[in-house]
Amino acid sequence: MAVVKLTTDNFDQEVLQADQTVLVDFYADWCGPCKMMGPVVEELAGEESNVKVCKINIDEEMAVAQKYGVMSIPTFISFKNGEVAGKQVGAVPKSKLQELIR
């Protein structure tokens, strides 16, 4: 499944109303660790058919980042049934993201 690009306008529909686990990557284009995690996130999206993988640019959608307490990037938050189920901050191995969505 392709990575879904989130905005303030589609966040509720794509994440909070999703009928599956959602992993959201909070990132910025200028962030080195975010760039490093990009291929890992893409790979995860291709492997995990039961998980929706999304990205949201904090520079463009600051209100969403603030709502979920994102202070450092990259930050990965998993959502289940519209609720935060887990959070991981920083560049991490793919296995850490897999743990986050289990």
Rank of each mutant, 00 (worst) to 15 (best):
K87L: 06
Q66K: 12
K67R: 14
A2V: 06
D12K: 13
K87I: 02
C34P: 08
L97Q: 05
V24C: 06
S95L: 09
L44T: 04
V15A: 03
A63V: 15
V92Q: 11
K67C: 01
L16R: 09
N57Y: 08
I77D: 02
G86C: 06
V53D: 01
L97T: 08
N81W: 01
A65I: 10
T21A: 09
D25R: 02
M71N: 10
E43I: 01
K96G: 00
A28P: 13
L100I: 02
G32T: 14
E43W: 03
S95D: 07
C34H: 13
Q98D: 04
S49M: 11
K67H: 11
V40T: 15
G86H: 02
T21H: 00
L97E: 04
M36L: 15
M1Y: 05
G69F: 07
P33C: 10
K55I: 04
V53A: 01
K5W: 00
I73H: 04
K94Y: 00
L100A: 03
F79Y: 12
D12T: 13
E43R: 15
W30N: 11
E99I: 02
Q17T: 13
I101H: 04
N10F: 05
A85R: 00
M71T: 12
C31H: 09
P74I: 08
Q20K: 14
A85G: 07
E14Q: 14
G69T: 09
T7H: 04
I56E: 05
G82N: 09
S95K: 08
A85E: 06
K35D: 10
V4G: 07
D19G: 15
G69A: 12
M37C: 11
L44W: 06
D12C: 02
V70Y: 08
D25H: 03
D29S: 15
G32R: 14
G82R: 02
G69K: 06
V92R: 06
F26H: 04
V64G: 07
L23R: 00
S49Y: 00
V40I: 15
D9R: 08
V22S: 07
Q17K: 14
N10C: 07
I58C: 13
G38T: 15
P33Y: 13
W30S: 10
V22C: 10
Q13T: 13
Q66E: 14
L100H: 04
G82Q: 06
Q88M: 12
G32D: 13
